[in-house]
């Protein structure tokens, strides 16, 4: 189980049926939520603590032709995840198979993952005070089952497999798709260190509402790699200085002479 897994989301094959969203809710026992039309056929605006995957719909008109762009959105399971770095409680960890999973027993619902994820994936349940997101059906994939969304995908837009083998397949498919969609690209090859969920997009990522160059926020580096360690050393240094100060005064007899009288104290201080 130590090999790195991958899910390929081939948007050229997606029909926008949203069965992945339903299968996700079923396997993960997430209740349905009231939805409303956002645009086109899209009925879910964003992730919620109870909705871990949904389909975005974009209608793009070019040369009197409509491109109907659909994308199944879920956690990317980054190789270099911002959520793991941001987590206050060591609750989010990375598996060797390539998944970022939240330990609900450790999560305190601080929301640092939500604020720092470049894709806005984790969402904190403000009642439960816990953060939720797609877990990649880690319980299924580590037991040789396909993720629920992949298993249910009828047009074959989702594929699960070993990363190396599936990447080769994805690149072959890309060459094919580029014949009709010259702007098609693979998204997630290098983004965030290489993601476990990789997209074959028909257009530039921005068209799908994805960041062109997703990154761990600079503020997160400054916070966790500069301010925390330097601040801790400064605090420790001050504590050590106080201990040394007290010991130096004890050795000088500063406390004793203070009790003996003011004259002794001044001498003690000046010695």
């Amino acid at each position: 189980m130590t090999t790195r897994k991958m899910v390929l989301i081939d948007t050229s094959k997606c029909t926008g049926c949203k069965a992945c969203s339903v299968a996700c809710k079923e396997w993960n026992q997430l209740p349905a939520e009231k939805t409303q039309l956002v645009m086109s056929y899209q009925s879910q605006k964003d992730f919620t603590p109870k909705t871990w995957t949904y389909v975005t719909f974009t209608e793009k008109y070019e040369n009197n032709k409509m491109n109907w762009l659909m994308r199944k959105a879920q956690c990317f399971h980054c190789a270099d995840p911002a959520c793991v770095k941001a987590c206050s409680s060591n609750a989010i960890s990375k598996t060797e198979s390539g998944y970022s999973v939240i330990d609900q027993n450790k999560c305190i619902g601080c929301g640092y993952c939500e604020a720092n994820c470049p894709f806005g994936v984790p969402k904190v349940d403000q009642v439960k005070k816990k953060s939720f997101k797609c877990e990649g059906c880690i319980d299924r994939v580590e037991n040789n089952l396909k993720p629920a969304c992949v298993k249910t995908c009828q047009p074959g837009a989702l594929e699960f497999g070993e990363r190396e083998a599936l990447l080769t397949k994805a690149k072959k498919r890309l060459a094919e798709v580029q014949k009709t969609h010259p702007k098609a690209m693979l998204y997630g090859l290098n983004e965030m260190g290489g993601t476990t969920y990789i997209y074959l997009l028909l257009d530039r990522p921005e068209v799908y509402g994805l960041p062109a160059n997703p990154q761990i926020p600079a503020s997160l580096f400054l916070w966790k790699d500069v301010i925390r360690p330097v601040g801790s050393v400064a605090f420790g240094g001050a504590a050590a200085a106080v201990v040394v100060g007290v010991l130096a005064n004890v050795m000088r007899g500063a406390y004793r002479s203070k009790e003996e009288g003011e004259t002794g104290h001044r001498k003690g201080g000046e010695s």
Binding site: W223, V226, I227, R228, G231, F235
Partner: peptide, 10 residues
């Protein structure tokens, strides 16, 4: 977040 932590450490 980093500003809050920096102020606290100082």
């Amino acid at each position: 977040y980093p500003v809050h932590d920096l102020s606290m450490f100082m």
